[in-house]
Amino acid sequence: MSTEKALALVVRGTDWSETSRISTLWTREFGKVRALAKGGRRLRSNFEVAFDLLTVCHIVFIHKHHGGLDLLTEAQVGERFPHLRTDLTALYAGYYIAELLSDGTQDFDPHPALFDAAVAALRAFGAVGSDRAGQVSAFELVWLRELGYSPRLESCTGCGREYSFPHAAGVRVGYSPTAGGIVCPDCGPTARDARPLSAAAWTALGDLARGGQTLGAAPRREVRLLLGQAVSAVLGRRPRLLGYVDAG
């Protein structure tokens, strides 16, 4: 066993007993950590009020290398996102991020860029006039990239034919979530889930992949549908919160 310190985002919590709680934490240093906080439900403990979902905490935990739950010994609040308590659509978007971090990643598989993207998105949700659909889409692309499923947007996933980006006028390609990117007109019929990809959506996906945070009005619905399908293909199911996010 070893004692570790980390910066963590609370992505799930379950009551374990009258006094203890199990928390799933996405840490910048170690990735996903599941830990038991003995006495965590008591009014006076070493955990302040750090168990609210989507709270950033500084934690200390004992890592049990043989497996099983780790032991959380200390948690202090580092950052909260108060706008999530007053904006229901922002809260749903935050819960969606928590679902992808909790259910779509492996224990102790660190991805600092994914932690940073999650916290950046939670902060951005509170900005006046922010493009929440664009911010959620940008996070999904980081999640896909860090898990090794970054969509191929500049070459056909079937034959490898390359396209300049943004693509040349008149080129018609499709997008296949299971293939993980675009398919050319020749390979499109072999990809059962391929659907036509508009020029506006193709360009928007490329902008987001390069660090953009906004979606234009024209490709918004199409990009959200495509990324939802891509995330679902990797996760093996449709995320529970995805419908709430896109309804907002």
Rank of each mutant, 00 (worst) to 15 (best):
Y149E: 03
L101H: 07
T105L: 14
G40P: 12
C57Q: 09
V142W: 06
H65V: 00
P82Y: 14
A121H: 02
L84Q: 13
L114T: 03
Y92W: 10
A75Q: 15
S130V: 10
H65L: 00
L54E: 09
A98W: 02
A117G: 01
H65I: 00
F125R: 09
V119I: 10
F115V: 10
L43I: 13
I59G: 08
L36V: 09
A98I: 04
A120F: 12
I97G: 00
H83F: 14
C57I: 08
H63Q: 04
L100D: 04
G134L: 08
L71M: 09
F61E: 02
H58F: 11
L43T: 11
G67I: 01
N46Q: 11
V128H: 10
K64I: 01
S102G: 04
F108A: 09
E146N: 01
F115E: 03
R42C: 03
A93E: 13
A138S: 13
P112V: 05
L101M: 08
A37P: 06
A124W: 05
N46W: 05
F81T: 11
H63S: 00
Q106P: 07
L141C: 08
K38F: 06
T73R: 15
H63C: 00
F47T: 05
A121D: 02
E48G: 01
H66N: 07
E48I: 00
L101W: 01
R42E: 02
P110T: 04
D116H: 02
A113E: 15
E74A: 11
D131C: 04
R41Q: 06
N46L: 01
V142P: 02
D131V: 07
F108R: 15
L122M: 07
G67Y: 11
G104H: 12
H111M: 03
V142Q: 06
E74D: 12
A127N: 13
G40V: 10
H83G: 15
K38Q: 12
R132C: 07
F115M: 09
L91M: 15
A118P: 04
G94P: 08
L88E: 07
F47I: 06
G78Y: 14
G67Q: 07
G134Q: 08
L84F: 12
R80A: 14
F125Q: 11
V77H: 08
L91V: 12
